[in-house]
Design a protein around this nucleic acid. Structure first.
Lengths: 338, 338
DNA sequence: GAGCGAGATGTTTACGTAAACATCGCCGAG
DNA sequence: CTCGGCGATGTTTACGTAAACATCTCGCTC
């Protein structure tokens, strides 16, 4: 039980099993060419000594770490956390570990810093969950052997990009509201730096224009419920506003509260649609109609993409879109009769 | 620009700078005993070649990975994500990387699996964010050189434990409600497996008992807003229920919705207090009075604890409590006059 | 001015693994 | 019956780094 020395190496196992360390290596890596009886012997010795491969030595020899780095700016958005979870789960299934590279402030400097550190990090590939234009503005040179996949970006020409089909989701939301009879739809947009926010806003605008509707001036939030509340106060005072599309569920929550405080009934007088379908959305007052994002699928495809690039050894630019779907709950209804 | 060969090693830098590789090593690790001019020369050569230390070789030689593993069961709880974020940030500041070890299902098997993998993982220490009794039930042998810190657990006698002061938070919540004049306080508890849930429930019970109040039968949820809604429906039908303490904010959200649907005014007829102080709590209808948890501080102390153990080389059992504080918003008020 | 010590730098070695190459023994074809 | 060949196993070597030890060069003291 009490191993007096430090950790056991292949040599120790080899000695006990009466074979060469190379044979132990073969058993350990699952290589063929070891006969059953020998294998059993080695396995027994491993177990007895509590042998654990030394990943550092393994990585040094093989040049691979079997680790994927994830650079992300904020955990606070539900989407990031859920995507990260899916990435971690799928990476684990493939025998890869995940190394977290948090970027505290999304300034150019800190992003460069993160990528510089990256070169020293034990990582085969990187998944970037953040606006990539921050990377571009910085003269960042990625370590040549590190592969990259980006989430939430328009850099599909240079990197492999995985993203939710933001545009189609926004279109579904607006179409739903127009279909209910609303004359137009107001929008509470996300921050201008966010590519996702811009895509949703653009699709909202395009859909209205395509339907020949008037496009109101969008209000801008920062994804937080509080910013949604501020926007909601403005909208609540506009009697002509009967339908609101918020760029995420948290801002929708703020809008709901503002409307409630101002005494405007949802969905009786004003309809509200969100984006994300966070778990809590079913318990908003009223339960929120929103666009469901499949974060798990996004994470899955990220890992898939990285592994493919790692196998082939070459980057595979292009954008993969994960479909969205509108989930209709109780926050939308036809506009009030005039 | 185009390096024809693979990555550069110390030997390459040494050759270009006209020094030995050991001198390069000294510069790279910041060791003293290298005169200024030599150092400059080496630094220049490093930059020209784009040298990056190979962390695998470094780890192999030094026996340290400068990496902390984080085992967590669920990302979905806000607390876990926020704690993880703080851990990642502080670890990065100390020059440590974070490796994520997700445990998909909290069964004994998968936990054992995670800890088995751990032995092969390039990790100096581990922070466990999850109920530790799952570890106990399994005959898990931690790799001897790996240090452990646990969050949300009562295993302070065997491990270093960092936790929020759950009991005091619950006490503050209950005292606040009693202070407003409520005769007693109902409780929507978290799942029985959760140590945090149990501690909050126990403190709720103790505080009521200590004040000589009647202790109603607690309702049990699973942390989700939906489960809070179900509990809320039950409570809404009890006219004697004027104050509810929910074990987290999401369940409180569900309670609010149930009360709203049943036409019971908050806080006019029923007061509600949550736990966590998630960002959205300010935008609930009405804004939620809740117990604020300092997740960032929890993360900070976890990293601190691991590093201290890593330095000293010995485990330091004991529990560190991070204080909580009640944030009073608009969901609590004196009970209705009878 | 000789010797000594301290600081700067170079040389050797080992960390644990796995690829490449070497060897050994056995079986079947001719 | 002999030899080629192949499968199983052993031996050598290199991965990139940093600790330990060796050497070398000064400047200073007596």
């Amino acid at each position: 039980m009490s191993r007096p020395k430090a950790r056991v190496s292949m040599a120790d196992v080899a000695r006990l099993a009466g074979v060469s360390s190379q044979t132990v290596s073969r058993v350990s890596t699952g290589h063929p060419g070891v006969v059953g009886s020998t294998r059993q012997q080695v396995l027994a010795a491993m177990k007895q000594l509590g042998y654990r491969p030394n990943s550092a030595a393994r990585a040094l020899k093989s040049g691979q770490f079997r680790t994927i780095g994830v650079i992300l700016f904020s955990f606070s958005s539900t989407g990031n956390s859920r995507t990260l979870e899916a990435i971690a789960t799928h990476a684990a299934q493939e025998g890869y570990a995940i190394t977290l590279i948090p970027v505290a402030v999304p300034t150019q400097d800190s992003v460069v810093g993160a990528f510089t550190r990256l070169g020293e990090l034990a990582v085969d590939g990187v998944i970037v969950i953040m606006e990539v234009h921050l990377l571009d503005s910085a003269t960042v040179t990625l370590p040549p052997h590190v592969q990259v996949v980006v989430v939430d970006s328009d850099a599909g020409d240079r990197y492999a990009v995985v993203d939710t089909d933001q545009a189609d989701g926004a279109r579904q939301a607006v179409d739903h509201l127009l279909g209910l009879g609303h004359r137009t739809v107001w929008h509470v947009a996300g921050p201008a730096e966010s590519f996702a926010a811009e895509r949703r806003a653009q699709a909202w605008r395009d859909t209205l224009t395509g339907a020949g509707r008037q496009v109101p001036e969008p209000l801008r939030g920062d994804w937080s419920a509080e910013s949604g509340y501020q926007a909601g106060l403005v909208l609540a005072d506009r009697p002509d506003c009967t339908a609101v599309f918020a760029a995420n569920d948290q801002m929708a929550l703020g809008v709901l509260r503002a409307l409630h405080e101002r005494g405007r009934a949802v969905p009786g007088e004003v309809s509200v649609v969100g984006f994300d379908d966070i778990a809590d959305a079913t318990s908003f007052i009223p339960p929120l109609t929103t666009v469901h994002q499949d974060f798990a699928e996004v994470g899955r495809r990220c890992v898939q993409g990285i592994l493919r690039q790692l196998d082939s050894g070459e980057t595979a630019p292009g954008t993969t879109l994960v479909p969205t779907r509108l989930v209709i709950r109780a926050s939308t209804a036809p506009p009030p009769a005039r």
